[in-house]
């Protein structure tokens, strides 16, 4: 392909090829502090739906080792989003080394707080805010659980902030680096937050899971203990590769469920959520 970018995020190497320069230039800027992979694990291709669409109302198709056939093309202005979606897709469909949980992860004192939930639950926002308050950001999208050790490995890609979360995190992290505002994407407005240098520098250091939260935004503050069986079911649903990993996935997931407490937290605003996290963490 005409333009190529490669990056290593945690233990995973990516190679992104593109028909256009612009998305590659944005990736180079935003991932400037990241190392290059020795050998990429996954390839992503951003290509024109038709040859003339490289110039005329350019639209970006996402390709790679693993593809979703029904994925719709994105306008070139959202090429960065296409690249990030492509990288996520390779992980979701192709990752076999680790049990993948659709969860954000932050670390403090060698122990990891995992937060999982549906889109809009606030797991990315909370991880971004906690990373400004002394926690190490390990990732906002995927937590990687090693079936052999039970340790969580970091995957600190760009933090994907959506809609109202953009202003909340910008207010709390005025000195942080952000990507361009991507308006009117299929997921609404999106802006990427660049993880701080400490998170990138420490991304090869795994840590022990200590607490699992299921945040839910838009309700009066409440905390509920979640029984092991419910945690297990919810995490099988939150994992993109539980079935593919077979018995290793079963060992990793049951081991995690038995090892750490889990709480569902409802919160009306992010300040409440951060206070709930502090209280639960302090009580461990």
């Amino acid at each position: 392909m005409r333009h190529v970018f490669s990056v290593r995020v945690g233990p995973v190497g990516f190679r992104v090829g593109s028909d256009w320069r612009a998305p590659i230039a944005q990736l180079e800027t935003l991932y400037a502090g990241y190392p290059k992979p020795e050998v990429p694990d996954f390839s992503v291709r951003l290509f024109a739906a038709r040859p003339w669409r490289r110039f005329l109302r350019p639209s970006v198709m996402i390709g790679g080792d693993f593809v979703l056939p029904e994925a719709a093309p994105l306008p070139l202005a959202q090429g960065l989003l296409a690249a990030e979606m492509g990288m996520n897709l390779q992980m979701a469909l192709g990752q076999r080394r680790y049990l993948l949980l659709h969860a954000s992860a932050v670390e403090r004192d060698g122990r990891v707080l995992l937060m999982t939930g549906h889109s809009g639950s606030g797991k990315s926002t909370l991880a971004a805010l906690l990373s400004r308050r002394g926690w190490r950001l390990m990732g906002d999208e995927f937590a990687l659980i090693d079936p052999e050790t039970g340790l969580a490995h970091a995957f600190p890609r760009l933090v994907s902030l959506k809609n109202a979360a953009i202003a909340v995190v910008q207010a709390a992290a005025s000195n942080a680096r952000f990507g361009p505002l991507l308006a009117e994407t299929p997921k609404g407005a999106i802006r990427h937050l660049v993880p701080d240098a400490d998170a990138v520098a420490a991304m090869d250091r795994p840590a022990t899971p200590a607490l699992l939260l299921f945040p839910s935004y838009g309700h009066a503050a409440a905390v509920r203990e979640v029984p092991e069986s419910e945690v297990f079911v919810r995490l099988t649903q939150a994992s993109t590769n539980y079935v593919a990993l077979g018995e290793r996935g079963f060992s990793a997931l049951t081991g995690l469920v038995k090892a750490i407490p889990a709480r569902a937290i409802d919160y009306p605003d992010t300040e409440s959520a951060v206070a709930q996290v502090d209280a639960l963490w302090g009580g461990l």
Binding site: P227, S229, F232, T236, G246, E247, F250, K258
Partner: peptide
């Protein structure tokens, strides 16, 4: 099979089919 006790439930992983039963 592999089994794990999860409060009132038992998770059973069936090796031949790769299916987890709760």
């Amino acid at each position: 099979v592999r089994t794990a006790e999860l409060d009132a439930f038992t998770a059973i992983y069936h090796r031949a089919s790769g299916i987890t039963h709760l």
